[in-house]
Design a binder for these strands. Structure first.
Lengths: 307, 307
DNA sequence: ACGAATTGTTTCCATAATTAAAACTATCGA
DNA sequence: TCGATAGTTTTAATTATGGAAACAATTCGT
């Protein structure tokens, strides 16, 4: 028997001055009202109410108990309201993890926009490339690029980013433009030691066939942003996702090539610890990001600049 | 499922950082620890703990909830301790009802003595002869003389008081001393309109037979104390309990007669609203009175004065 | 004054909830 | 890779719950 319910019944009986009316008010039988109060009394080993069939009065202990009961029940209600509001209205602190590049160039602006709509949410953005235990570190959310690391977590696809081969206009002036994936073998291809494709670049041609080209080059880096900078400065070709090079392409710092050969796109996922009872701050933020990156993210809008 | 128990389980899990150790600490199975926390979460519709098989951390809501839980559980414990102490240690206010005479001359001195042993008890003494609804008026205790009024109440015999026929020495000088109950017919017998025997005075003789004498007199009063005063002043004979006339007999103001013929004694009862969970203040007070009035109450100690 | 109605309690019983053990799944350490 | 450990789910037996009916005591209306 739930003690808090019993306490509620007791307070109602005390206030109503009758078991019957309290029972009716609470929608239960007189029998249960009796049993609830009796349960409290037996638990304490103390009589709370003096009662005959017709009269009812609080004992001295009952008065003390009643007062404290009311206070505790009030606090329970207040607590549950406070906690529920924290859940149903977007507020509190949203702790987000992402890679440094995506976080700085895409998440930060998105967060700024999001917070205009939800000013009661604070954001703590932790940009770090390696593995992070979301649960242990207390993250609400992580943005994962391509790889799905933790199977116990829930992932929701936010969008995708094509990968493109590109180089600076100056590089192409010097070394020419590759027309087929095979041509890449004769070029200086800068590779990333952290991102998956590394030196095995894979393309699908419109028909559906897949080619893999083993590329070589004179620079390798664990941070893709460094390759991008090298490419912009004319060192060689890179295979990078559009979220990294979209802006460079639009500005003309890099030019995409082999646009008829499509590498597998990079998927962008929001990852969070649980699905049940998702908090409003997480839900609204993920919805917001999904809308912002779906279906065609802004970082692939360079067509106008090219035409 | 008791919500307070669930709250306790939740706080233990949060503190221990593990369901298993919290369960062991509380002496229940891991399964139940899970269910208790789940019950809270489902009730709120909010996740309180992020957990994998290996890691456990509070959600933001969980932190708020934990803090409030601890506070509420503390208050519950404090309340129960306070209330239990009020019950097990004699303290608080003892509201007592009795007749004016018995209250003033016997209860008041007894209360004074009682309170030396139990200084934390306050006493509210209401002296009133008529019927009082103990429960409605919030009395802890009443002292009833002879008649048992309310069958729903609990009575405990505290002692008894013999009834004696007596008059002032001056009266007996004038009118002589009755030797048998029958002699009373020739005496001026003062009768009480409230006390049961009224004008039908009943006696048992040592052998066991019972006589009833219908007496007459020139004064009747609803307050027995008035008869006593009249008798002391030589008006006539009274049949009164020893608790009223004991002192007068000892001091020689009244002389008992017909001492071989014994009227039915008056029984003195403590009457209280319930038997279950009797509070310490009531229990100790009734015990105290019982000891004071049992087996032979001090008001019948006039033998020494007579010899 | 007397029957009808109301109240608190008790009994009874079908239904629902609680509990721990065992099975299951996931993770971590050796 | 295997074994150990932790959280969850399932299962099955016990226990608790809550209402209907019966009861005892009391009050109210006529």
């Amino acid at each position: 028997m739930d003690k808090l319910t019993s306490m509620l019944v007791f307070t109602k009986v005390a206030k109503a001055g009758s078991f019957a009316s309290a029972a009716k008010e609470l929608g239960l039988s007189r029998a249960m009202a009796t049993k609830h109060v009796m349960q409290l009394e037996n638990g304490l080993g103390i009589r709370l109410l003096n009662r005959t069939t017709r009269n009812l009065s609080l004992t001295e202990v009952g008065m003390v108990y009643l007062e404290r009961c009311l206070q505790i029940l009030d606090e329970m209600e207040e607590m549950e309201i406070a906690v529920t509001r924290l859940q149903t209205e977007p507020r509190g602190t949203l702790k987000v993890n992402a890679t440094p590049f995506f976080g700085a160039y895409h998440l930060a602006p998105a967060i700024a926009a999001y917070m205009e709509s939800f000013p009661e949410v604070n954001v703590e953005l932790v940009l770090q490339a390696g593995y992070i235990d979301l649960i242990e570190e207390g993250f609400d959310l992580a943005i994962h690029l391509d790889e799905m690391r933790d199977s116990s977590l829930i992932a929701r696809k936010l969008g995708s980013s094509q990968r493109v081969v590109c180089g600076s206009p100056r590089y192409f002036e010097k070394h020419g433009i590759p027309k087929t994936p095979d041509d890449l073998r004769k070029h200086n291809c800068l590779t990333s030691s952290s991102l998956p494709p590394r030196d095995q670049w894979q393309f699908s041609i419109p028909g559906g066939e897949t080619t893999v080209v083993k590329v070589t080059g004179n620079m390798e880096a664990n941070v893709a942003d460094a390759l991008r900078m090298a490419a912009i400065n004319g060192l060689g070709l890179v295979l990078l996702p559009t979220y990294m090079v979209g802006q460079d392409i639009r500005k003309g710092r890099l030019t995409p090539v082999l646009t008829d050969y499509v590498p597998a796109p990079l998927e962008i996922h929001a990852v969070y610890p649980h699905r049940k009872h998702l908090s409003a701050k997480v839900r609204t933020f993920v919805d917001f990001l999904s809308e912002r990156f779906h279906p065609k993210p802004y970082w692939e809008d360079w067509a106008d600049a090219q035409e």
